[in-house]
Design a protein around this nucleic acid. Structure first.
Lengths: 368, 368
DNA sequence: ATTGGCACTCGGCGTTATCGAGTGCCAGAG
DNA sequence: CTCTGGCACTCGATAACGCCGAGTGCCAAT
């Protein structure tokens, strides 16, 4: 069972790698002869065939049918990604472009994410997804209550890293802006610095106790406000590039196409698949072990076909990574494509986009 | 060329209507025999055949090939919609459901639109689209400038009908919250009541002239604020039900499917197709002439296939309508489906959703 | 005007044959 | 023991053929 014993020897590695790359490019089962011709292995096709047979035996490849070429299995892709591929560096020009685009929308996170998603889908030719940062564990900095119309109040929250959330709630229309302002100020004074998820209704009651607002009214306002705070974590997904997917062979059968489009249309499902598995530290993270030193700390995660454990997405892969805002806020961006995906290109891309986002957001406030 | 002379006689009308309805249901060219059997016309198939031939002559129907049944042309659908169909009333239960769902998210327009879109796509089985109300012609009611972090300010606009827009801008970080508040108050005092699109930069300069803020700083703030005001019209589209589309025959060929998915993914394109054609009053509005009296004023619009004048959407139809907020704010909702669409069901649905939105939004502020 | 009857068309489908890319295996060479 | 050229075999894809039947258009009879 020792991993060392199972380790592939040099030739197997070379050939597995060649098969994956060829298949990704051509979308057709790859034949021994083709490998010999295009990847100058100094071998005959017969030898390659025997290696292919072994790789199949070991579960890295499979044949769609006898007398067809080989296709990588999930395991084949996995090994390719973890051990065999080389990340191809992005063109300088591409980098500039990404940087420039992201720079533009740096002030509004939603806009930034939309941009990032657009860049990723365009750059990779697959579908990309960006998720809002999760704010449940972020900290309350400011809270304002603004009367929009009689009976309708805007609850405005400023959180860690200057993230803003707002929400309109309904309150008794006897209250005036002055009372609301006092309530907000009281809450802000007492609870600024608390994590959203730690803020309880009672804490808010205590905070706003001496605002001179009749208790029943106060409680209504507080309750609505509290609800707004608890629901600050809207799960917004920015999906881009859907039409790209339909270009790929694997989705030429409508059934598959529908499964994927469905999945991509379901915010809940996507969020689930994108979120970094918080306590499952073991969950197949891209080790990044063969990354160039400079970005050795970049953790991306790839999930391939069955690994997604998602009915209907057996032909898909997700590449995801986590971007960072100051004060430990994080969110996810990712790329979804066919299992037969140009992983190295995608990973380079997504890593760079993530790096750029991190960089921009970290230094945002200190730049003019 | 008089329309009266071209008018179809009773039998032609009956048969055209039957053909459309049968085709919508079965998705296959409809044959004379089938019509006789299922729509108890007291005629033989031979007679029906001759009528069908005439309808084809007149351009209402076509044959995919000799010895196949008939299929409606754009013109056929058009006539069906304008003159022949009967709107089927919604089940009471459905109505309740729509009302209840919309009621829930009445306070946040984006949420309301998301809901509406969801209801429409679920209810009709097609794709639905909802657009934010356009606010360029709405009026400024309140404006606040809130310092989020040093150098970053939230511009918050309250507009007609209590619509809220916000945007984060970057300003010199020497300014403090007090100065910002003064600027905002001055603008609000002078410009409240102005239409957004009428607000010029100079007007803002005049309004904020005596706020005791150094001119160059002031101008920077004003400029950013002005930009935020001018860009208040974000074109957000809420699209729901994409997977539904792929269920329909016409999109079983990937090429078609891709065209549609592309179109639906392009906010700009969609917005263009959904917006009510403001000055082109002649543009094919659903006359509503055969609507029940109670909703006689409901204007919906249908555009069929070629009428969309959109490369790649020849097999699609759009049904759109306009919802209303107080103070003349309007936005669009619509349904997109194959040309072979259950128009009467869709129109009933969309009309009711629109009615309900209008109603809820109109009475929103007066309810608790 | 309507209809039953009839000849005609043509897409869809199942059958069959052919082709060739690709494999597995093996015997012989290095 | 490894590698390779050769060979038999498999099997999907494609094309050709024929048949069936749904559906039409036309016409003569009522």
């Amino acid at each position: 069972m020792s991993r060392e014993l199972n380790r592939l020897d040099g030739r197997k590695r070379t050939i597995l790698r060649a098969v994956v790359e060829e298949y990704v490019e051509q979308a057709e089962p790859v034949a021994s002869r083709c490998l010999v011709e295009r990847y100058n292995l100094n071998l005959s096709s017969a030898s390659v065939r025997s290696t292919l047979a072994e790789l199949e035996q070991l579960g890295y490849l499979e044949q769609p049918h006898t007398s067809a070429g080989r296709v990588p299995t999930d395991r084949g892709y996995r090994t390719y990604i973890d051990e065999l591929m080389e990340l191809e560096p992005l063109a300088q020009e591409t980098k500039e472009h990404i940087r420039a685009q992201l720079q533009e929308s740096i002030d509004e996170i939603p806009e930034l994410l939309r941009q990032a998603s657009g860049l990723l889908s365009q750059g990779t030719g697959y579908v990309s997804i960006a998720l809002q940062p999760r704010v449940a564990s972020s900290v309350l900095r400011q809270i304002k209550l603004l009367m929009i119309e009689p009976g309708r109040v805007l609850v405005l929250l400023v959180l860690s890293a200057g993230v803003v959330r707002d929400r309109i709630v309904r309150i008794p229309d006897i209250l005036d802006q002055g009372q609301l302002a006092r309530i907000a100020a009281a809450i802000e004074q007492q609870l600024a610095g608390c994590k959203l998820r730690d803020i309880s209704f009672v804490m808010m009651q205590l905070a706003a106790a001496d605002t001179q607002v009749p208790e029943s009214l106060l409680n209504q306002v507080l309750f609505e406000t509290w609800t707004a705070i608890q629901q600050a974590d809207q799960l917004a997904t920015y999906v881009d590039g859907m039409p790209n997917l339909l270009r790929h062979r694997e989705f030429h059968s409508i059934a598959r196409a529908r499964d994927v489009v469905s999945a991509l249309s379901s915010d809940g499902l996507l969020t689930g698949l994108m979120e970094p598995p918080e306590h499952e530290a073991k969950a197949i993270p891209g080790s990044g072990e063969n990354l160039p030193a400079a970005s050795a700390a970049v953790p991306w995660m790839v999930r391939i076909g069955q690994e997604l454990q998602q009915q209907g997405l057996e032909d898909c892969s997700f590449v995801t990574t986590t971007y960072h805002l100051p004060e430990r806020l994080v969110g996810s961006i990712g790329v979804v494509g066919p299992r037969r995906m140009a992983y190295s290109r995608v990973i380079s891309h997504i890593s760079f986009v993530r790096q750029t986002i991190d960089h921009l957001l970290t230094w945002r406030s200190s730049r003019s």
